[in-house]
Amino acid sequence: MVAGKYISTLLIVLSLAVVAMSFNIEGQSVFDPSSPAFFPALVGAVMLISALMIARRGVQSPSSAQEEDKAPKPVAGNEDDEELEKDMYEVENITQKGINIRLILFTLLVVLFAVLMNYFNFMVLSFLFLFGAMLLLSREKVLRSLILSAVFAVGFYYIFVYVFHFVFPS
Rank of each mutant, 00 (worst) to 15 (best):
M88Q: 07
M88W: 09
K5G: 08
V91G: 04
L11S: 02
M88G: 03
M117L: 13
L137M: 15
F113L: 02
T107Q: 04
L125F: 06
F156A: 08
R102P: 14
S8E: 06
L136R: 14
N121M: 06
A37D: 04
Q60G: 05
F164G: 09
S29E: 06
L137W: 03
E92S: 09
H165Y: 13
A114D: 07
N121T: 01
V2Y: 08
L146R: 04
D81G: 03
L136S: 14
L130R: 02
Y89G: 03
F164W: 14
S170M: 07
Q96S: 10
M134S: 12
A20C: 00
Y162I: 00
S138Y: 08
E67C: 07
V46S: 13
V161A: 07
S34D: 12
I7M: 12
P62V: 01
V124R: 03
A41Q: 06
N78I: 15
D81A: 15
G77V: 08
A76K: 15
R102F: 06
S34T: 06
S63P: 13
V91P: 15
L103P: 08
G98N: 02
V75Y: 00
Y6L: 13
F38C: 04
L105G: 05
G44I: 02
L135I: 07
Y158L: 08
L14R: 08
T107C: 12
L52I: 02
L135T: 02
P72M: 05
V18Y: 04
V151S: 07
F120Q: 06
S170Q: 07
Y119E: 08
I7G: 05
A45P: 00
L148C: 03
K73R: 14
I94R: 15
S8K: 09
L137G: 05
